[in-house]
Simulated assay, not measured.
Amino acid sequence: MPRSPAPPLPPGACDTDYRTAFALAPVGLVISRERRMVDCNQAFCRIFRTHRELLIGQSFALLYPSHEEFERTGARIVARLDAEGHYADDRVMKRSPSDPRGELFWCHVAGQALNPAAPHEAGLWSFEDLSDKRAVAPLAADGRGALTAREREVAALLIEGQRSKQIGRQLGLSPRTVDVYRGRLLRKLGASSTPELVQKLLAAG
């Protein structure tokens, strides 16, 4: 399909090639369609430690710790997208998609759905590596293991200051079930209260 001609630059703007601007932007950028990567830039490839040719046409599922987390994130985007098609969250993702043992890390994702009525139809998404600010929780002090996928989702929303009822609405859980996960997190991180738990989650690692 031939490309549409680029729109004229506004008065005073430098004569920038927008394709180059996309490729060299300092933040990870992806154009998506039906949750597949149509295009991505160099910063995105650096974040995920891979190459553009290995990502184009592939599902975002490659970049998640599990297919379950990929599906739940997709449902959460549909539920939380605002009227103008904006969405943002912090989530755990996986580097080096060709490696089953790829490193897990926290990532801030923000996006714009081009058609808010169909959130996954097409969109533009930005990705910011948060690993310098927040580590994925390591093995607990008592050796009971790292957080499960669902525990990570609950933990991310607790960090945002959300209450059990709000978390349950977003994750499709009852408030009581959210409280069960909160209790597990308290035990795993050795916290005695939710504020202390949030501080430990932020400082994990």
Rank of each mutant, 00 (worst) to 15 (best):
P2M: 11
S4K: 13
P7G: 02
P10T: 03
G12H: 02
A13D: 01
A13K: 06
C14I: 02
T16H: 09
T16M: 10
A21N: 00
A21T: 01
F22Q: 01
F22I: 01
F22E: 00
L24R: 09
V27H: 02
Q42T: 08
I47V: 14
F48D: 00
A61F: 03
Y64S: 10
F70Y: 15
R76M: 11
D82K: 10
G85K: 13
H86C: 12
D90H: 14
D90M: 12
K94M: 14
D99R: 13
D99C: 11
D99N: 15
E103T: 14
L104N: 04
F105E: 02
C107F: 01
C107N: 10
V109L: 08
Q112T: 10
L114T: 06
A118Y: 08
H120S: 10
A122T: 11
L124T: 06
S131Y: 01
A135Q: 12
V136H: 06
A141R: 15
A141Y: 05
G143H: 09
R144Y: 02
A146K: 13
R152V: 02
R152Q: 13
E153V: 08
E153N: 10
A155I: 10
L158S: 05
L158W: 01
E160C: 10
G161Y: 04
S164A: 15
K165R: 13
Q166R: 14
I167F: 09
R169T: 04
G172N: 08
P175F: 05
T177W: 08
T177Q: 12
D179W: 11
R182Q: 12
G183C: 13
R184C: 08
L189M: 15
G190K: 13
T194R: 15
E196A: 14
Q199R: 15
Q199K: 15
L202Q: 11
A203D: 00
A203C: 04
A204N: 09
